[in-house]
Every structure is written in C-alpha cells, then in structure tokens.
C-alpha cells in the first residue's frame, strides 16, 4: 500500500513544485516589502517625532501581540466588510507585509539604539544633516547588530507563509493539505512538504548562524 501511495505521490509531484513556486513567490515579495517597510518604520520609531513613534509603537504591539493566523483572518474577512475586495494572493501579501514589517521595525530600531549617542553628536558636530548622520554614520554601524536577527527573521517569514494556506492560497502547505485528502498517507505527504521547506529555509539558517558568529567578533 505504502509503495502504491508513494508512486501516486510521485505522479503528482509537479503539483508540489507549483506549490513550492508559489511559496517562493510569496516569500520573496514579502521579504522585499517587509525589509523596505521595516527599515522605514524602524528609522521613524527611533526618530524625534513623538506622534509617529507612538503610532508605530501601537502598530508593532498589535502585530506582535496577536497570532499571525488571526491577522490573516482579519484582513481576509474584514476588508470586504469595509468595501475592499481582495483576492487571496494579494490579501496574503498584505498580511505578510503588515506582520513582517512590524518585526523588522523592532530589529532595526534596536540596532539604531545600540549605537552610542556620541556617534550622533560627532556626526552632527561635523555638520552632517540628520539624514546624512543616519545614512553615513549610524546605519553602517547598526547593520552589524541588525543583520544576524534580520536573516533569522527572514527564516521565520518564509515559514509563516504556510499560514496563508488558510485563506486558500495554493502554496506548499495548502498543496499538502489538498493532497492528503486523496492520498491518506499523512507522514509521507507532509514529510515531502517539510523537505521542500527545509530546502529553502535551511540555507538561510546557516547564513544566520554564520553572521551571528562573524558579527560577534
């Protein structure tokens, strides 16, 4: 029986590759948008504007304080009530962007605050504008602190894409879920799904470990 199911599974393997491709697309677009948004938010979070700081703080707390699957439900079910119709795929991207940017915002803000005040003062004293201080003096130093947890966060984001399967996006986990109904070998089906996730996230884990060791010196 096992062998029979295995050959069935191999027959529909292209289906899994399509799911993997969807996962990779969501992950790639999300990593990009989350990084850009996260850096902006993180910079304003450590900036001078009190209202912005407070607002970003509330946003980050909401995202960090609630499960991602609840956020996905909120976006998918509630936006239509407000008259915004979204397909599953853009809804998934929106949810990923909101969630990921909040986590990256905290990493960036933490990195910036790790730089001693004297560095800002020194840069200001040599006549650099605020943006120049940040771009030329602070961020290059802060990157050392930011990079290892950032790559770690990327791994988490890739894995979190599995959650958007709940609104029907045909990514890897969803493919597994659909398949297991037809091929009732849960261990086999989800081992395959797991292996495919492993293939994309393990290299990033290794990179994160490497960066952590290098930056620690």
């Amino acid at each position: 029986m096992m062998a029979f199911y295995f050959s069935r599974l191999m027959e529909i393997f292209p289906f899994f590759l399509k799911g993997l491709w969807m996962t990779v697309q969501i992950a790639f677009i999300s990593l990009f948008t989350c990084t850009v948004l996260g850096f902006f938010l993180g910079i304003f979070r450590s900036g001078q504007n009190r209202f912005l700081k407070w607002f970003i703080g509330v946003y980050v707390s909401f995202v960090r304080g609630t499960p991602f699957v609840v956020q996905v439900f909120i976006i998918f079910f509630i936006l239509p009530e407000w008259g915004i119709q979204l397909e599953a795929f853009p809804a998934a991207l929106l949810a990923m962007a909101i969630m990921g940017s909040a986590f990256i915002c905290e990493i960036v803000a933490g990195g910036i605050s790790s730089i001693p005040k004297g560095q800002w003062e020194a840069a200001a004293s040599s006549g650099l504008t605020m943006t120049q201080q940040l771009r030329l003096v602070i961020l290059p130093q802060a990157m050392k602190v930011i990079l290892p947890p950032l790559v770690g966060q990327y791994v988490l984001l890739i894995k979190d894409t599995s959650v958007v399967s709940v609104i029907g996006v045909m990514e890897l986990t969803r493919v597994g879920w659909v398949t297991v109904v037809r091929i009732p070998e849960g261990l086999m089906v989800f081992s395959l799904v797991g292996i495919l996730y492993f293939v994309i996230s393990y290299p990033l884990i290794l990179l994160s470990n490497y960066l952590e060791r290098r930056m620690a010196v």
Partner: peptide
C-alpha cells in the same frame, strides 16, 4: 529539522500522520 520547517506543517504532519 524543527527550526527549518513551519509549525503548521509539523501540526499537519502529526494530525494526518499519527493515524496512519
């Protein structure tokens, strides 16, 4: 293995896998 696969996949692995 745990760190490089999603929790949801691990949950489904056990949920659909243990009965088999």
């Amino acid at each position: 293995i745990i760190r490089s696969t999603p929790l949801l996949v691990q949950i489904y692995f056990l949920y659909f896998g243990l009965p088999t």
